[in-house]
Design a binder for these strands. Sequence first.
RNA 1: UGGGGCGUCGCCAAGCGGUAAGGCAACGGAUUUUGAUUCCGUCAUUCGGAGGUUCGAUCCCUCCCGCCCCAGCCA
Length: 566
Amino acid sequence: MVDIETTAKDPGNAEAGRDFIRDIVQADLDSGRVRSVVTRFPPEPNGFLHLGHAKSICLNFGIAKEFGGACHLRFDDTNPVKEEQLFIDSIQRDVRWLGFDWGEHLYYASDYFEQLYTWAEHLIRTGNAYVDDTAPEAMRAQRGTLTEPGQNSPFRTRSVEDNLDLFRRMRAGEFPNGARVLRARIDMASGNMNLRDPVLYRILHAHHPRTGDAWSIYPTYDFAHGQSDAIEHITHSVCTLEFEDHRPLYDWFIDSLPVPSRPRQYEFARLNLSYTILSKRHLTRLVTEGHVSGWDDPRMPTIAGIRRRGVPAAALRSFIGRVGVARAYSTVDVAMFDSAIRDELNPSAARRMAVLRPLKLIIENYPEGQTETLEARNHPDVPEAGSRMVTFGRELYVEQDDFMENPPKKFYRLSPGKEVRLRWGYLVTCRSVEKDEAGNVVALRCTYDPESKGGNAPDGRKVQATLHWVAAADAVPAEVRLYSHLFNRPDPGADGDALADLNPDSLEVLTGALVEPALADGLVGEAVQFERTGYFALDPDSRPGRPVFNRTVGLRDTWAKMQGKG
RNA sequence: UGGGGCGUCGCCAAGCGGUAAGGCAACGGAUUUUGAUUCCGUCAUUCGGAGGUUCGAUCCCUCCCGCCCCAGCCA
């Protein structure tokens, strides 16, 4: 099986509308506050990227592209106990697959460790930081609560000399983990908890994926992020709403340090999706506890999972564009994602026939041993897509759902005495059914109208349904994996543990599917439409002669909807 | 009861003082060799609530209500 390279050529910006952040960028450009825009996407390499990150990626890279600027990919690798090279690699792969390019601008916060350290000493010298020996629990107690001010640490008034000495020895590795920290001296009574002398450095004797064992102290997010932005001359540092009250601290560092530029932080609402969970903590649990097959399980809302499911990058971008960017807390209906996927696939996916749950159909008046080939269009609306030949014969398979012995009123498909069209084939009429001892229908005995080749009878009579089918003579056995929501409620976790809301039926494996031969040797990841069923993509688990298909998304199903309403 | 935010159609989301865009969903109907697609139509006299300013307010002011985030040496 060949792995298809689906990296999009042009992510375009047609799908991205206007939003308050783009308005700010435009205004800054117009006023001359910035000459050219520089943004950044700053993932922490402690997990795989998911749909929430996709929103940030599309926003940051999209803005850079639209305004002729640059977007940096910067790994926020300040916590070596959680970060791994595996994630650094997967993140780059996923961003590229999404269609974005950081060019030369690949950075790591760890690239700046030496500079950040120098700035930390600067803070000490200017009386803005001190080494605190307070134990973690005591420090928590001293911090106060949301409504009560904190207490100053007894170490807050240490001399500059002592602070410098201690901090250097922290770096030298003289103290065990947790023994001391470097803190900013701001205001223990601030209503903003982030300003109550936040920790800048902690002692961590840990191996870092990039710096190895060179450091035994590591900067916190707050101390590293803004300064990294400043070093890279980021103009607009865009993050999610929960960092809003970190902004005063972000600005405090920029004001207190001799940084080379003055970036500004802006916040937008993170993406939430119904029936989905987008938190690295939960996604990590799904993987490590084995609820899914891995980070790229097609049910996962990770970029890797979505890609494996067969969703084109363009559909993902289109979806993000439809969602928009604002500051209001929101949860997007997952149906909107499905819609974006269908809109992307409908005009492009080749049509094929595949029977998911086969039911044998025997044409009594079709000569034994005879077969013929019929031309089948690859796309109903795109003539250039061409056609392929399909085999027709006396024994065929149709979908079990397409037959009912005692059909309700509006059932258009096969039932005793009813005539339907076999797509690209002939009109057939069901004459009788064969059953096993248990009374299950095991085969349909039909007759066909030899004059209806291609699907139309010379007398112009109409049929209500057109069915997909495959010939017993050359159908290829396949495995088909049907996916549905990983969680069985729109707001997983609202009542407690999200994993308790896992949908036990999110994966259905059909091992007895039969597909037309043209489906036997596709490319992994290539989208096809199984007519009347949905969009599918070949899974990497496929082997020669045994294709495995993932259902990317089903077709709209008005009939199922009618039935659901009884 | 500290600080910071958010509330426009079932779900997203425009709107920036001049009289409520668009998408998704839903519901009708037309076309159809996919009950798909496409097409056409319906879907907020009203913008969390109450006052106020104004000729005029979703947009300005006041108060109230609801929801979210913050007390990691995580990001």
